[in-house]
Structure formats: structure tokens, C-alpha cells
Nucleic acid binder design. Structure first.
Length: 296
DNA sequence: AGTCCGCCCTGTACGC
DNA sequence: TGCGTACAGGGCGGAC
């Protein structure tokens, strides 16, 4: 499942292939993949054709290509989305949803034509074209994601403001971590990993957290993401950009997620699995005891 | 306004 | 073997 580190790996990989390239005739092979482009699939392709890509940016789990039209091609990978750069003649992937041919300036880049492909088995991901608005720091942000908070690796992320906002919440800690309007980029896997590292239980009432604990938590979030990024960033330098939640790139370093009944790396107690928000939460029963007033 | 639930989707694993 | 069910879960619309 792509969370911030995986999306950042894709962003870095994509940049090399698409910056400076122009888009040819885009083909939408599955309408659901552009469902959030409100003006429809035909408008989606029309607003991309012939546009030149400037740069690839990211906030949390959202990724966008800035275009010479002043708009952006915004992408969210959802659960199973991939953005691949392939030779135009390569066989279609089974779940190819959108095809975006690339043309590079004649005096640069590889001779064989390539295309950007959006592949998405479960179609939770999507693409859309959107105009940019000022994000408050002079940078452009796609208008449909202005409610997405800065992510913890963003230099402009405000720890003080986050701590204050977190304590104003009246909910459980993991629910807050997964709320992309409070802090972005954190999904189920890295939430569990950060909570384990910070020795905090997922149901801890947010308003009872003290500042040192919030700082410990933020440090943990940044460390697990940075470590994953370091692994992912060195895991591929191949022809195409790839992200695959099941790839196992980052599995080796997990301490909690998916480790039911296996010993905690700190204390040896068997990791427990609980159901919460219709998904799994993994934690150590000894290092992360259930707090008073737990919010399930 | 803040909080939270249900739904969307497909492939795999597993019990009977 | 085949069928049914559980599970994976991000983000949003809408209920409360």
C-alpha cells in the first residue's frame, strides 16, 4: 500500500523521465480512474494533449505533474496504483487504466518512444487535471487537495501547530494519525510502526498526550518514513518507475505491522492484532498498554 | 464544526 | 473442485 515513502520513490523516479517531456494523445481505458475529473474523460484527455511537463511534486500521498498550461495532472495511487514509464510497444499490463504517451525534445533522451502508464488493479486510485492555487507559501497546490495537511517530511511542517491541533482533537491517536487533514502521508502501516516506536497505544485519547510524547511520536513517524525511503530509493533504478504495496521492499524492517503472534523486537511479547476502523492494528501488548479512557 | 461510518473495488486465501 | 466469505484499506460523502 503506497504511503508517503513509496509515493516519494515514485516521484523521484518519474521526475527523470517526464520533466521536459510533452504529452501525446492520452487514452482513458477505464472511466473509474478519472472519476474525480469532474468535467469528464474527454475533457481530461483534451486538457493534457500537447502539454509540456515541468516538474513532479508531492504532498502526503498525492503526486502531481505541473504543466505548461498552468494546470497540474494530479495522481493518487490508492491501494494498488502504479505509475510506470514503459516503451510504447511493451505489452499492456493486465490492469492498465490510462495511457499517456511521452515525447521528449529531439536532441535529448532515449530514441525509442515511451509512455507513462497508470496501472491500478483495484481502482481506488485516480488521476485528474486541476488548476493550481497558492498554498500560502507561494507554491502551487492543486485546488482539490487544499484540505490535505503538510506531511511530516515537509520542511514547512509546523510541529507546534500539529501538537496543538492534535490535543484539540477528541478522538483516538491512530485515527488522528490517519486523518490527512491533520498530518498527511501516514497510512495504516507506518501509523502502526510509529506508534510501536513511540510506545503509544492506537486508542490513546489525543487530548491526554503531552508535548514530549507528541515530539517522540513525530520523531518516530519521520524515522520510519526516512528509513523506508532510504530502502525504496535504492531498490530500483531500472527502466521504469514502479511502486507495489506487496513488493516487500520495506517489509524486512517492520516491527509491528503484519507481525501477529511474532515476538516484539524490544520485549519478546507476542504482537497482537486488533480490528479497528475495519482494518488491522498491530501493537505490542507490553510496550503499548491499553491507556485509560481508550478511544476505540 | 468535529467526529465517524459506509462504501467503492478486485484478487487472494481459506474453510467447508 | 467449487462456492462463499474474510481480508487488504485510502478517501470521501453524508449522517449525526
Amino acid at each position: 500500500m503506497p504511503e508517503l515513502p513509496e509515493v516519494e520513490v515514485v516521484r523521484r523516479g518519474l521526475e527523470r523521465w517526464v520533466a521536459g517531456a510533452s504529452l501525446g494523445e492520452v487514452a482513458v481505458l477505464h472511466p473509474r480512474s478519472v472519476r474525480r475529473h469532474v468535467r469528464g474523460a474527454a475533457d481530461f484527455t483534451a486538457s493534457l494533449s500537447g502539454r509540456v511537463v515541468a516538474e513532479v511534486r508531492r504532498r502526503g500521498k498525492y503526486l502531481w505533474l505541473t504543466l505548461d498550461s498552468g494546470d497540474a495532472l494530479l495522481a493518487h495511487l490508492g491501494m494498488s496504483g502504479q505509475l510506470l514509464v514503459q516503451p510504447c510497444g511493451a505489452d499492456d499490463e493486465r490492469h492498465l487504466r490510462v495511457r499517456l504517451p511521452l515525447a521528449v525534445p529531439p536532441d535529448s533522451g532515449p530514441a525509442d518512444p515511451r509512455e507513462l502508464r497508470f496501472v491500478d488493479q483495484r481502482t481506488f486510485g485516480h488521476l485528474l487535471v486541476d488548476h493550481l492555487v497558492d498554498d500560502g507559501a507561494g507554491e502551487g497546490l492543486p485546488s482539490v487537495i487544499t484540505h490535505i495537511a503538510r506531511d511530516p517530511l515537509d520542511p514547512a511542517f509546523d510541529d507546534d501547530a500539529f501538537a496543538a491541533a492534535l490535543r484539540r482533537r477528541r478522538t483516538g491517536l491512530k485515527r488522528a494519525l490517519l486523518d490527512q487533514s491533520l498530518i498527511s502521508g501516514v497510512g495504516n502501516i507506518y501509523a502502526d510502526e510509529a506508534l510501536w516506536a513511540a510506545r503509544l497505544h492506537w486508542a490513546r485519547p489525543t487530548e491526554t498526550l503531552r508535548r514530549p510524547q507528541i515530539d517522540t511520536l513525530l520523531t518516530a513517524v519521520r524515522e520510519v518514513m526516512t528509513a523506508a525511503l532510504a530502502q525504496g530509493g535504492t531498490s530500483f533504478d531500472s527502466l521504469y518507475v514502479n511502486v507495489n504495496g506487496e513488493s516487500g521492499y520495506f517489509e524486512r524492517s517492520l516491527n509491528a505491522y503484519g507481525r501477529r503472534d511474532r515476538p516484539c523486537a524490544r520485549c519478546g511479547a507476542p504482537i497482537r492484532r486488533e480490528t479497528f476502523m475495519n482494518r488491522s492494528s498491530y501493537s505490542c501488548p507490553r510496550c503499548q498498554p491499553v491507556p485509560r479512557g481508550a478511544r476505540v
